[in-house]
Simulated assay, not measured.
Amino acid sequence: MKKLAFLLMTTAAMLAACGNGSTEDSSAVTETGIKEHLVMGLDDTFAPMGFKDSKGEIVGFDVDLAKEVAKRLNVEITFQPIDWAMKETELNSGNIDLLWNGYTITDERKEKVLFSEPYLSNKQIIVTMADSAIETKADLAGKVVATQQGSASVDAINADTTGIVAQFKDGAPLLYPTFNDVFNDLESGRTDAIVVDEVLGRYTMKQKGAEKYKVLADNFGEEEYGVGMRKEDTALKAAIDKTMSEMKADGTYEEIYSKWFAE
């Protein structure tokens, strides 16, 4: 009787566990082979692409694009802040399904992820305080130059062929966890210059007071943003590419773009 009672209790517990919580199957897919619930990974300090606003809500240009794409594909999407330095690991381990946060397309990243078609152009600008004597890339010799770890800015700096990086103070850029930290230490005088995505940089300078900063004519290269997916997610790539193309054709992309980049 004791064994029977234990068996009944165990069976009941298992049934309760199965019925407890959401009935949604995170691995369920649509008829087109796309997961019904997508998780988008992002650095929630990367304004205006994807970031937390004053209310703690995740907003931004990429967030609005992703919501519209998910709506048209009739799937759910949630936004998951991640350690951006671990982004490809998070993607390929299955913790997230998309990297969509000012994610620069590079040859090195193409070896790890599947990219959508490019949807926005960008470049890596050099920013100093307005009263800085630095005027050109060559003037960075002996100076403390900072950027965010794991970012495309680091890749662009390391790919530079002019030889100036070896002349930075300590022979390499100073790396910070977020671009907020990068800007804060530039303002405090702990660094002399920073390298940052132009999209983020100009948005941040506008919020902080653009007159305080100077953007050099030189830069560390032009690039394009894309959506990152796992290599096997070819159906998802095709769906995103097709939907984004339709959004550009019907004016929706331009509406979202104007919301975040009015100037």
Results as ranks from 00 to 15, higher is better:
residue 23 T to F: 07
residue 84 W to D: 03
residue 183 F to Q: 10
residue 102 G to E: 06
residue 247 M to P: 05
residue 19 G to I: 01
residue 29 V to M: 15
residue 189 G to V: 02
residue 122 N to D: 14
residue 163 G to F: 03
residue 232 E to K: 13
residue 66 A to T: 10
residue 173 P to F: 05
residue 18 C to E: 03
residue 224 E to I: 08
residue 57 E to A: 10
residue 198 E to G: 06
residue 117 E to K: 15
residue 182 V to A: 01
residue 181 D to N: 15
residue 114 L to E: 04
residue 251 G to Q: 02
residue 77 I to A: 07
residue 184 N to H: 09
residue 202 R to P: 02
residue 76 E to Y: 10
residue 159 A to K: 12
residue 179 F to M: 15
residue 116 S to G: 06
residue 138 A to C: 09
residue 126 I to S: 02
residue 45 T to F: 11
residue 223 E to G: 05
residue 184 N to G: 04
residue 194 I to T: 00
residue 171 G to E: 00
residue 129 M to L: 15
residue 89 T to W: 13
residue 26 S to T: 07
residue 229 M to H: 05
residue 85 A to T: 09
residue 242 K to F: 01
residue 139 D to H: 09
residue 216 L to W: 00
residue 38 L to W: 08
residue 232 E to V: 12
residue 57 E to Y: 05
residue 36 E to G: 12
residue 133 A to G: 02
residue 111 E to Q: 15
residue 76 E to S: 13
residue 79 F to V: 05
residue 197 D to E: 11
residue 84 W to I: 06
residue 240 I to C: 06
residue 138 A to D: 13
residue 212 K to P: 00
residue 42 L to G: 00
residue 147 T to S: 14
residue 117 E to R: 15
residue 188 S to V: 01
residue 214 K to C: 01
residue 93 S to F: 09
residue 6 F to L: 15
residue 60 G to V: 01
residue 201 G to I: 05
residue 180 N to W: 02
residue 229 M to L: 14
residue 51 F to H: 09
residue 138 A to K: 15
residue 90 E to A: 15
residue 89 T to E: 14
residue 148 Q to N: 09
residue 25 D to Q: 05
residue 100 W to Y: 14
residue 26 S to F: 06
residue 259 K to Y: 02
residue 113 V to G: 07
residue 175 L to Y: 03
residue 16 A to R: 01
residue 134 I to A: 07
residue 204 T to Q: 12
residue 224 E to H: 14
residue 38 L to I: 12
residue 7 L to A: 04
residue 256 I to D: 06
residue 172 A to E: 10
residue 133 A to H: 06
residue 118 P to G: 05
residue 93 S to K: 14
residue 149 Q to N: 08
residue 37 H to G: 05
residue 173 P to E: 06
residue 164 I to Q: 06
residue 229 M to I: 09
residue 263 E to D: 11
residue 131 D to N: 13
residue 184 N to V: 05
residue 244 M to C: 02
residue 201 G to C: 12
residue 140 L to T: 00
residue 148 Q to M: 15
residue 34 I to L: 15
residue 44 D to P: 03
residue 220 F to Y: 15
residue 48 P to I: 01
residue 151 S to M: 08
residue 213 Y to R: 14
residue 65 L to S: 00
residue 72 R to L: 11
residue 134 I to M: 10
residue 148 Q to K: 12
residue 143 K to W: 12
residue 175 L to Q: 09
residue 223 E to R: 14
residue 61 F to M: 08
residue 76 E to P: 00
residue 192 D to H: 10
residue 113 V to E: 10
residue 50 G to D: 02
residue 210 A to F: 03
residue 72 R to S: 01
residue 5 A to C: 03
residue 131 D to P: 06
residue 142 G to I: 10
residue 150 G to R: 07
residue 44 D to M: 07
residue 169 K to W: 02
residue 166 A to P: 02
residue 194 I to S: 04
residue 156 A to N: 01
residue 81 P to H: 11
residue 122 N to R: 04
residue 99 L to H: 05
residue 186 L to Y: 03
residue 253 Y to R: 13
residue 32 T to A: 15
residue 17 A to Y: 04
residue 93 S to M: 13
residue 132 S to M: 09
residue 133 A to S: 11
residue 220 F to D: 03
residue 29 V to E: 14
residue 152 A to N: 12
residue 96 I to L: 11
residue 120 L to A: 11
residue 122 N to L: 13
residue 246 E to L: 13
residue 71 K to G: 04
residue 256 I to L: 13
